[in-house]
Amino acid sequence: MKNLSILFFLFLFFSIPAQVFSQETDSSQDGKTDDFSPGWAIGIKASTLGFGGEIVKSFNKNLNLRLGGSYFNQKYSLSFADAIADDSWTYTTVGSVSLIMDWHFSRIVHLSAGVLYNMTVMKVEGLPTESQHIGDIEVTPETIGSLTYQLTPNEICPYFGIGFGRSISKNKVVSFNFDLGAVYQGSPKVSLDATGMISPTANEEQRKLLEDNVKDLRFFPFLNFQLSFKIL
């Protein structure tokens, strides 16, 4: 997740000057400021649901429809767990296919609502690769076994948020948009799996307990930085 945040900032750092430059260029070339022409745009984005792109259709100067997709997968090795299991990994997959409507109630601020097909999965896996010892007994990694915890939210999720900027420019080529909102993902489903000596850990009672522990994680925060190019 830390890596994801760094990527966001890097993207922001490089994208903002580009947006400013394009606006200045557009302004100096034709001097248009408020004229509206409906059209299509494609965009690239970096969000808390991964990296991706969008197709944007503007119907009038207040209403845009966005169809997009994003994906990001990261595998982390946890150094603090190396002492107990040579490889302890977490796999995080975020991603979505989204259909979002923007309503611009002011020049640069809009409200957004839509629906996402949510591909987010968080998986933690502990898997030793070297034998351990209990007293004089050598215990192989296979005998110790592995423990896998997986958190999966609902697949179909409503979204509501507020945005700044435009996902398709009214009268220029390049536009920038920032979204801040929440995805209602429902209470996540927990699956628990274990093998070897620790296999009794993954029983139904424990799974229900873990699921109950995260039942309040119903909202997924959505931040999106998007750069769009009007094509039609």
């Binding site: 946890l78 603090f80 107990i84 299991a85 351990q132 110790i144 423990l147 915890y149």
Partner: peptide
């Protein structure tokens, strides 16, 4: 063997 670390890892 530090099996309990699996639990700690997952928790963290």
């Amino acid at each position: 063997m530090k099996i309990k670390g699996l639990l700690s890892a997952a928790l963290t």
